[in-house]
Amino acid sequence: MRMEFYPEEKDYFFKKTDGRVKLVSAIFSIAALSTIRTWEYLAACLGFYIFLLCLTGFPVLKWMRRIFFPVLFAGAMSAAAAFANFYAGRQYAGIDGAVLFLRALCAIVVLSSVIYSMSFRELVFSLKVLHVPDVLVNLIGFTIRYANILTDELSRMKKARKARGYSKGRNFWHTATMKVIGQTVAVLFLRSYERSERVYQAMLSRGYGGDIRLLSAPARPGKKDFAFGALMAGVPLFFKVAEMGAFSWIMR
């Protein structure tokens, strides 16, 4: 099993936009979105982002499959929060839950689409330019780089189990299955730990001293990039300002 990090689609506008600008505008967008309390405004933002992605040739269908689990998780958490509020006797618990879910959904849409449209090199470069600490950049880098190897190891372990006649139990309460899954996860953690040691030694052997050197810098962002970034971050900011009553003040 291989996890593709690089999108293989042709170049499209969203992908061609400068990575640094996309990342910064995503951060501003998420910051603004997380303060909006009106579900209609959040829904409007979500609609805008989906429309923007479609308009710029983003491979929406492929990308949607990738965000399925984060969305599912956000939904489950929001529902749990709504139920907790409902039982605590709070008014509008359902609407609060919906607001929470929409905020999470918007954040997932913004961040995942930005990352999906960037090459690994571009992502690392953008993070470095934004002065994200090296440790964090390394952590993100290695997570992505070694996702392939871990999934390969997991798939080898699965095959080896199958070859010895193992088959999964039918339900969650099948203790033998749970035991095997637990052992697999434990072994995977141990293997990952050992591999990380070896990778670090291999890096040291080639002169690694803890900092990442950037070998090639992409061109400076242009007007189009800035305009696109402003649009991305501007829409949630606009709704936030509207929520604060700025337009009623203007109308007066």
């Binding site: 591999r195 070896r198 291999a202």
Partner: peptide, 18 residues
């Protein structure tokens, strides 16, 4: 480390760049 180049047994330990 500049004088001695070490190639590891498993290339996956060594080759990690994009």
């Amino acid at each position: 480390r500049k004088m001695v180049g070490l190639v590891f047994q498993d290339p996956d330990d060594q080759v990690f760049s994009p």
